[in-house]
Nucleic acid binder design. Structure first.
Length: 651
DNA sequence: GCGATCAGCT
DNA sequence: CACAGCTGATCGC
């Protein structure tokens, strides 16, 4: 949870993500995203009165955040005072002291943060230097280099301070599987469950927060269904989310809530009370998205863990891991960094000291030297990407429409001047090449949703539960095993980048480490997979060569992560661990298909990512060693080594 | 009665 | 998995 007090040293007359105490005196407010811990004081009566008498104080946020905020009546009074800003559009804002008339101008740019729908980072540029407030973020390794507005020309901007989401800035959280890997794992589990019969349903035990929407949209897309949720109100102006959620309980995927939902689930009931029409008990599994992390020397990428007869935890993170934060900061090399979260057991000083190691050092302060590699990465031609404005035709027949076109949210924004449109190329010059992949289609209209009431089914089922559970799991294991076997080359979805617009992550991926990108990067799993562990000798690789059946039996992870509970989990007798990405046999297969067996030797540090084999960027080709050498020569000599793509009619 | 804060829970 | 946010108890205004 953020402990940021709301104000930045450089621009103390604005308040961000805090609206109580001293912040009531701010000249302007900024809301990075619509999570309650960033909205403290936002419905305060003091603030309400202040707004009423103010002519200049406004709340700045993204369009999506505005919608989410105003969908809660408690914040409805903000309606006349919110100024939604477009992403990546530098906007000048006058900070006026209404008492004295004193004025200061800053230029603010909203940058996609990948944390939840509408989440942004704020880049401030003004007389006190460039300052980046990250809010909460999940950016993949390499993403910073793809954010246009963190660059000036082809160089990284001189950032005075970064106010950083340090939630996972702790070496224990060294790696968190990428969004794409996690999604694939969940997809496999869901798909193989609900395809068994119409009585097999999944309950996504999501906490009540924005941030799971991309899970819903991807599962909805892949299985041609909708996800049952409690309310659609907040999404009423977001058609790309709206089309994948429903309040109709006749669906096999539920993300509904009930105050006693855990109890319900124990009694084999969904939180919404949905039952099958003929009285047949539903076969429910719960999948609880949870953050799973892996230490630096941990080898596994298990993204699904079985925690009970019908319960699973699935890896899911809203925040960047340690290594992602490290990558982000060491790329930007700010002069100062201020963590927003201090892990338990650490002090602000300790955390700041650690972070400072990634900031520029004293000699750099004097003359900040730009490294040849610290240049803005443009999209590579081999990377299918997403053009938010120009590629509608690509989606013809796929019912895929770029979000920007559909979103009424992005339309009117003229309240503020935009004096400083940067001369940088428009980020929308990228395009998405949708690939139609086979996806399971599961019909979903067989469930009866007459008001179930709790006593009907639950009680008498109790006795049977254990046996049933066992039987289910046998089936389940087989199914999942198949899933794992298939997982290598199978792409879960051919989605358009719907979710990431709501996540406001519009950066473009050119690395297999980048998962915050569109689902288009989930189209296929390239055979040019990375492998390799930094410390293979530390692990028993037995399980990698064992039959997959054994993989499902139990205890697989003996990681040396110093995070003990993770390993405890792994040793639970009924722990089931999926290995969607890594299995020795598959690696062998990969190598054969690939015909590029020794490629990992050529990889950069960030690519090697020893603990995690993440899917390669679709359609990408590993450069051959000679090509790579050529590339390095170019980079060393300062040449642009990136293959640029022709602009496709960007605006 | 309302808001702030905290413990407990998930 | 430690995120995010609910519920309920307590306290002060």
């Amino acid at each position: 949870m953020s402990s940021f007090a709301g104000r930045m040293k450089e621009y103390p007359t604005v308040s961000l993500d805090r609206f109580d105490r001293e912040n009531v005196h701010a000249r302007a407010y900024f809301l990075s995203h619509c999570h309650k811990d960033h909205m403290k004081g936002l419905k305060g009566p003091l603030l309400k009165r202040k707004l009423h008498f103010s002519r200049t104080v406004r709340l700045y946020c993204s369009f999506v955040t505005k919608e989410l905020l105003l969908s809660n009546p408690k914040y409805a009074f903000w309606e006349d005072y919110i100024v939604p800003l477009e992403l990546e559009s530098p906007t000048q804002i006058s900070l006026v002291d209404e008492a004295s008339g004193e004025k200061e101008d800053v230029v603010v740019t909203l940058l996609p943060a990948g944390h939840c729908p509408g989440s942004v980072m704020f880049l401030f540029e003004g007389s006190q230097g460039n300052v980046l407030y990250t809010g909460d973020f999940r950016l993949a390794i390499g993403d910073a280099s793809r954010i246009e507005h963190l660059h000036s020309g082809s160089r990284v901007k001189d950032i005075q301070s970064v106010y950083l989401d340090s939630t996972f800035y702790d070496p224990r959280f060294y790696k968190i599987p990428t969004r794409e890997v996690c999604l694939n794992g969940i997809s496999e589990l869901v798909g193989n469950w609900i395809s068994q019969s119409s009585y097999h349903v999944v309950w996504l035990n999501c906490k009540a927060a924005y941030g799971y929407e991309y899970l819903f949209t991807n599962l909805g897309e892949q299985f041609n269904t909708q996800i049952h949720v409690k309310s659609l109100a907040m999404f009423k102006k977001m058609p790309e989310i709206l089309s994948y959620v429903t309040t109709d309980r006749k669906t096999q995927i539920h993300a509904c809530r009930h105050p006693k939902d855990e109890e319900f689930f124990q009694g084999n009931r969904l939180p919404c009370g949905c039952t099958a029409p003929d009285g047949t008990p539903l076969r429910i599994i719960s999948i609880k998205p949870s953050t799973m992390w892996f230490g630096e020397r941990s080898k596994k990428t298990n993204v699904i863990i079985k925690t009970g007869a019908s319960s699973f935890r699935a890896c899911f993170s809203f925040h960047s891991s340690y290594s992602e934060i490290k990558d982000f900061l060491s790329y930007l090399k700010p002069a100062n960094v201020y963590p927003s979260v201090i892990p338990i057991g650490q002090t602000l000083t300790e955390v700041t000291q650690m972070l400072k190691l990634m900031c520029r050092n004293q000699s750099d302060q004097a003359a900040f030297i730009y490294k040849p590699l610290g240049v803005l990465k443009r999209t590579r031609v081999e990377q299918p990407t997403y053009d938010s404005d120009s590629d509608d035709s690509l989606f013809d027949g796929l019912d895929l429409v770029p979000v920007r076109k559909k979103m009424p949210l992005n339309q009117e924004i003229n309240n503020v001047k935009s004096p400083q449109k940067t001369a940088l190329p428009d980020p929308a010059e990228e395009s998405l090449q949708p690939t139609v992949t086979e996806s399971q289609t599961v019909s979903h209209n067989y469930l009866d949703c007459t008001e179930s009431n709790d006593e009907e089914e639950g009680e008498e089922e109790e006795e049977e539960e254990e046996e049933e559970g066992q039987g289910d799991m046998n089936v389940k294991n087989e199914v999942i095993m198949e899933a794992v076997e298939k997982s290598e080359n199978k792409c879960p979805s051919s989605n358009p980048p719907k979710w990431q617009d709501f996540f406001t992550t519009e950066m473009l991926s050119d690395s297999q480490n980048s998962q915050s990108q569109s689902c288009c990067s989930a189209q296929s799993t390239s055979p040019s997979r990375m492998t390799g562990s930094q410390t293979p000798e530390l692990f028993s690789d037995e399980e990698e060569s064992t039959d997959i059946n054994e993989n499902f039996s139990l205890t697989l992870s003996a990681s040396l992560s110093n995070h003990s509970s993770q390993n405890q989990d792994s040793s639970l007798p009924d722990t089931l661990i999926l290995h969607p990405e890594q299995r020795g046999q598959e690696k062998e297969d990969m190598k054969e298909e690939n015909d590029q067996p020794e490629m990992e030797k050529e990889l950069s540090e960030s690519q090697v990512s020893s603990d995690f084999d993440v899917p390669c960027t679709p359609e990408s080709q590993m450069p051959r060693p000679d090509e790579l050498a050529q590339l390095y020569r170019k980079l060393a000599s300062g040449e642009d080594a990136v293959i640029r793509k022709e602009s496709q009619g960007s605006v």
